[in-house]
């Protein structure tokens, strides 16, 4: 046993779709409690990277180690069971159910059962508490509304709550802030900061650079599936290559 294996270790992960290398030999490490930001232009392979780590897509090459354990090619539910929760970029809740009933599904999972020793009490109550935590106003009955009538902002919050319900150790947020207004983002940031204070490890994929740079310890930049830069937010911002990738030829 090596001492202090990295919390998450990704080595030269590669996935090809047709002729396109969606993710091309990407490697990175993650320490426990770290917040890693992932940025890159559209189509640079960010979501595919998440899919590869969480097992939704099988990599062509490369490995993923989680807490020293090889999780490459495991089924998504096994990976989730180990404590990696992910939020989808495209929210698609269970529309026919009230919001709080949506959370029953992660609360019903074997992982939660194991962690609570089977004594979770009333799942409905836990679900409503969780939703309140992410900003569903219980007093105005928002948690009881059908998911189909909730506005986008609430659905995004629910997506976060769905991750939290799993009691994960690593959360991967795929463009959680996309489509939200400034005010909504501002109201969601404290929730994420609270998660950080609980020593959760977070990978954030984001287009909102300002918010991302504020909370993340480290930023990784992808372009055409390749990692082109990695480091503290400030350094990455100033890197020539990143400017070129984002601004194209205008930067000369």
């Amino acid at each position: 046993m090596k001492e202090e294996a990295p919390f998450l270790k990704v080595t030269s992960l590669t996935k090809q779709f047709g002729g396109v290398r969606a993710v091309d030999t990407v490697s990175f490490d993650l320490k426990k409690g770290e917040i890693l930001g992932v940025i890159g232009p559209n189509g640079s392979g960010k979501t595919t990277l998440v899919n590869l780590i969480t097992g939704f897509v099988k990599p062509d090459a490369g490995k993923v180690f989680y807490q020293g354990r090889d999780i490459t090619g495991m089924m998504p539910h096994r990976i989730a069971d180990l404590g990696i929760a992910r939020a989808f970029q495209m929210v698609k809740p269970f529309y026919q159910l009230p919001a709080f009933k949506n959370l029953i599904i992660p609360l019903f999972s074997p992982r939660v059962k194991r962690l609570t020793g089977g004594k979770y009490g009333d799942r409905d109550a836990i679900a409503i508490d969780l939703l309140e935590e992410v900003g569903f106003e219980r007093d105005s009955f928002v948690p009881f509304k059908m998911a189909s009538v909730l506005p986008h902002g609430y659905l995004k919050r629910m997506e976060l709550a769905l991750c939290m319900a799993l009691r994960p150790e690593l959360i991967i947020l795929d463009e959680l802030f996309s489509g939200l207004s400034m005010a909504e983002v501002a109201s969601m940031l404290p929730i994420i900061e609270k998660l950080m204070s609980e020593n959760l490890t977070i990978i954030m994929i984001e287009h909102r650079l300002r918010e991302l740079f504020r909370i993340s310890n480290r930023v990784m930049v992808l372009n055409y599936g390749k990692k082109i830069a990695e480091g503290p937010p400030k350094e990455v911002m100033e890197s020539e290559e990143v400017k070129k990738a984002y601004l194209g030829s205008e930067a000369e």
Partner: peptide
Amino acid sequence: DNDRSVMRSGINI
């Protein structure tokens, strides 16, 4: 409704 979401919840669909 959404099998992917059930899967990421750690449930073997």
